[in-house]
Design a protein around this nucleic acid. Structure first.
Lengths: 230, 230
DNA sequence: TGTACATCAGTGAACGCGCGTTCACTGATGTAC
DNA sequence: TGTACATCAGTGAACGCGCGTTCACTGATGTAC
């Protein structure tokens, strides 16, 4: 009981110095490091600021303390990546479940949430899909395993695409899509969503069609060959 | 005559030390610095390696020599950006001119070249549209002027979009497109092309539909509402 | 034609900074006897 | 119950590195007289 109600302040105290974990609770710092890295990514709008020392400062510990939890900087970023993939997946699933019980509306809602998440969390989205840029960029080609329970990035991509594929397939089955190559059309939709997020994020000041939800809807309806019953 | 035939080796000599420019020719180093930065971008697959010292090493000069030509690191990257925009524009124009004399084929050829260029020059493309990431990322929001004859990035975006807009408009005029909102549809096409380039580049190992030219064609035909005469 | 001088096109050494990483350590706390 | 000890969860100082930037300088070359 106490354990759940009397939540100790896990973060840094007033002096910026975090209180030491109790014996056996050392692994909590692993989580805090990931959280710190995430905070750093959000605040600086990019993953480049995620240095060992910066993360240590953010969490309120000495830099070498990180080595007990992560092998190096890249390991931290990979752990963050794993968490973000779960975040995005959960957000999309929730949006689809909240949509009206109609295959097209579910598809559109999922796609809209994908774009909404990407634009609301620009830096996080970039960590997910723009690669670690320098070193990690190469790794994204090999199916590298991420995080403790993490899946390979490629596998996530496959999952996301499978989800989309399934969603469009449902539309076809309901006679609402004329797609004859569902996999190709799923890919087209994914690529268009990704482009919407990244290009809008890169050129914020551009006079994009608004609202973005309508733009996404049109994109999806056309690429998934949705045919509303006459 | 001599000037054009007896081209002096402008680069670094055997010792890695570049020969000093003749009097009055000092501005040549400006070009060489941009070239060096570009070489660095291509070789390291990203713009992060473009440091003042690295560029100086690449060109074969002392680091402080750069200050006579560029205010700082960002100025170099902006000059590179300006050159790359011209590169991309020229490539697309050439491809469209080489296409059959048909509005749809011209449109498709331009879009295919856009994607081809992006995938063949991944790092360059990222410099253009993924922002300077850290510091420059903020600048891309304001219309910052780039290079000596450079245009703002936003303006380039507007030009590219205008070109696309014009191209689709031609299709409409020829009765080959059913688009009723050409600007919105141009935006959709651009966004989809951008997504194709960046997502394929980020996840090289993914089983993407091949060949990419056909994929792009389908994307464009659908988003630009092309209606081939029956 | 000769020579002093200004200018141009750079150089070399040095600075302070933040970084990743190493090393020996410290101090609280649970456990065996 | 008391106490020695092992373990856990970290710390602090130091290293070498590459970075941007500054400063005073150098040496070739064109130009004025």
């Amino acid at each position: 009981m106490e354990r759940t109600t009397v939540q100790p302040t896990k973060g840094a105290d007033v002096s910026g110095r975090r209180q030491r974990n109790a014996r056996g609770e050392g692994s909590r710092l692993t989580d805090d490091i990931v959280q710190g890295a995430l905070a750093l990514i959000d605040r600086t709008n990019g993953a480049e600021a995620v240095t060992l020392r910066a993360v240590a400062r953010e969490v309120g510990i000495a830099a070498p303390s990180i080595y007990a939890h992560f092998a190096d900087r890249d390991a931290i970023v990979l752990a963050v990546t794993a968490r973000l993939f779960d975040d995005l997946t959960a957000a999309i699933t929730a949006a689809m479940d909240a949509a009206p019980d109609d295959p097209v509306e579910r598809l559109v809602a999922g796609c809209q949430e994908y774009v909404r998440y990407g634009l609301a969390n620009e830096a996080r989205y970039r960590v997910l899909f723009s690669g670690g840029r320098s070193a990690a960029a190469g790794d994204y080609c090999k199916p590298v395993t991420i995080g403790p329970h993490g899946r390979p990035v490629l596998e996530f991509g496959a999952e996301a695409l499978a989800e989309l594929d399934h969603s469009i397939e449902e539309c076809v089955r309901a006679g609402l899509s004329a797609s004859t190559d569902v996999l190709a059309d799923s890919t087209a939709v994914w690529v268009a969503l990704h482009g919407t997020v990244t290009l809008r994020a890169a050129l914020r000041a551009f006079p994009w069609p608004e609202p973005v939800e309508d733009f996404v809807r049109q994109l999806v309806l056309r690429l998934a060959k949705v045919t509303r019953p006459a």
